[in-house]
Design a protein around this nucleic acid. Structure first.
Lengths: 336, 336
DNA sequence: GCGATTTCTGCAATCGATTGCAAAATTGAT
DNA sequence: ATCAATTTTGCAATCGATTGCAGAAATCGC
């Protein structure tokens, strides 16, 4: 039978026959402790499987060594969505934070009032906050950002916006997608997605800009304000496409929406990309595996996560960081 | 200009002109505090936007109010995988834990040694641990489970296993999938997935059992031990299918694998499901949107998350819980 | 062998909360 | 007004660590 397991620093100190200060310093490799006692204590710690209590340690050090990652479930999307795009970003964030020795506190929030972010920031549970997606909470984000520095947001950097938003240039992405279809000779190009969301709005603006550049007047009826992730999405898409047989190109605001469109077209017997070219957005992991593989606009989430975390740490160190929008990238596959 | 913001309980006590004990009790709605002071203090707290420091509170109360959710990235899958299946489960877990007032600490681990789980359990950062997927870490899980009660695992309940595993009955799932294809008249059925992983192994066992029941001798060459999430997966699948033109049915160990197979078949000009019926596994969110929509074996992750969390809380309360395997379900769509 | 340095160790305060116990204030009865 | 019973409040210890400062032990010179 092994020795009774050691619960705290004091226990270990008792066993070692020294004070807690000495143990603490020994474990922290303080030069104040002689080589001899240091190794002896390290040995004892290993032997008894002792580890410092991180909570107590962090309390004393006035930090938490944890970052909150918030998924605000705005509006109607109160159902349990699990957008592969968001989840991929989350994975990268987990890696980036772990690498720096921080824990990641995952928080899903249905913003019932406008206090949710304040509650989180002053609860003392985390050293910083990363919000994924602005949803319809820009006002809350702006207000909190004015008071709480270590806050960064994945999303669109709007004008007059007070919080630090990091994301891809969605307007450029929308332009890129649309220009690609135009280059393919398509002229009656639909847009699938709800421009009311900031990111989607920017993509739609890019879509309009590209059309204008090509001298084409945008046809308002070719906009389907699709709620991402909604159950009704596929039905709406099918009906929309049936009502608009003239469409020869589709700019979808997400890969999921593009996938639905491809399926609807396929069921209606219209070939992709021959009859209708479809371009997605995000380049989620499965985009390469659809039939046909999805041409799409790629957002480099590895880079995005790295930028988010880098900005957050700068802010935790006290310096405000600007918003950044980096360029998305056209990924050519087979759907357009 | 508003009053300087209140940092801690003592500050608030000073402002209120009472002791910290009184403030603490007032905020906790203790009956020891008169109605008058209670409301006065509550009012002050709101006014100054004061909130208790949760870290300090939990330290005193000897808990953390946080649960670790671990994604062990076993073997070669050290790349940044983001299996939609795992991510969906994660979302449900986040909801279930939040509902009970617990934080979710997300931890990705590449098991370099066999101490990773011990380090986590004795770090004092969490009150319990949920491990998603056994990967190749069964020994570690068993060892830790013997010492640390509040540990539950999403995965396959193997015989002689010491830890509490909760998951669907993978053998039954594999049987279901295979029996469905057999019912469709298919006879040369391939299995896509690596049986070395516990869950996949069980699905493969079910596949073999179904074939045996139908009086068919399983053909070892019809097994493609595909590494899930690997980059090479698609190429391997294509080559495999090209080498086996006799195949008329595919049981895939995941929806992602099924999707790859459908694409490979489609590129080879073989119709799904007419020439080759394909059935997936998991019923991830996009499974309904592939072309054709995926027939698959559904694992009810909402239920799974609920079971995991329920078992974990029982264990945190001190009672050991048994492993459970609940039934998966055949979802009929168009691919088989 | 003795005092002056240098090296090592320990006491006690601290982080921000909670809580048992005792003291103070209030209330009520006489 | 006095005293007992009751209600309210505060002191101080505690959770498990870290760290400034002071005191003990070891080392050194002569």
């Amino acid at each position: 039978m092994t020795a009774p397991s050691i619960g705290n620093l004091a226990d270990l100190a008792r066993i070692a026959g020294v004070s807690t200060s000495t143990v603490s310093r020994a474990l922290a490799d303080s030069p104040l402790i002689s080589e001899k006692t240091r190794t002896r204590i390290a040995e004892l710690a290993r032997e008894h499987g002792f580890q410092l209590n991180q909570v107590a340690r962090n309390l004393r050090l006035g930090r938490t060594q944890a970052i909150a990652v918030v998924l605000p479930l705005g509006d109607e999307s109160a159902q349990h969505v699990s957008d592969p795009f968001i989840m991929t970003l989350l994975g990268f964030l987990a890696d980036a934070l772990t690498e720096r020795g921080y824990d990641l506190l995952l928080t899903r929030i249905v913003p019932a009032d406008d206090q949710w972010l304040d509650r989180l920031t002053i609860s003392g549970r985390v050293d910083g906050v990363i919000v994924i997606g602005q949803s319809d909470q820009r006002a809350v984000l702006d207000r909190t950002a004015a008071r709480y520095l270590p806050l960064v947001v994945w999303g669109e950097a709007g004008i007059g916006q007070k919080h630090c938003a990091i994301g891809t240039d969605n307007c450029e992405g929308g332009r890129l997608a649309t220009a690609h279809l135009l280059g393919l000779g398509r002229r009656r190009i639909a847009f699938l997605g709800n421009p009311a969301a900031p990111e989607i709005g920017a993509r739609h603006a890019g879509y309009l800009a590209a059309l204008a550049d090509a001298g084409i007047t945008a046809e308002p009826s070719l906009l389907l304000p699709l709620q991402l992730g909604s159950k009704a999405a596929f039905g709406l898409t099918r009906d929309f496409l049936a009502a608009h047989p003239e469409i020869d190109g589709i700019v979808a605001a997400s890969d999921v929406a593009a996938m639905g469109a491809i399926r609807a077209l396929s069921e209606a017997g219209r070939a992709v990309p021959e009859a209708v070219a479809v371009i997605g957005y995000d380049d989620v992991p499965f985009a390469a595996h659809t039939t046909p593989p999805l041409t799409t606009i790629r957002q480099d989430l590895g880079k995005g996560a790295e930028l988010l975390v880098a900005a957050l740490f700068e802010r935790m160190a006290g310096t405000a960081t600007p918003s950044v929008a980096f360029a998305p990238e056209l990924v050519l596959r087979a759907s357009a």
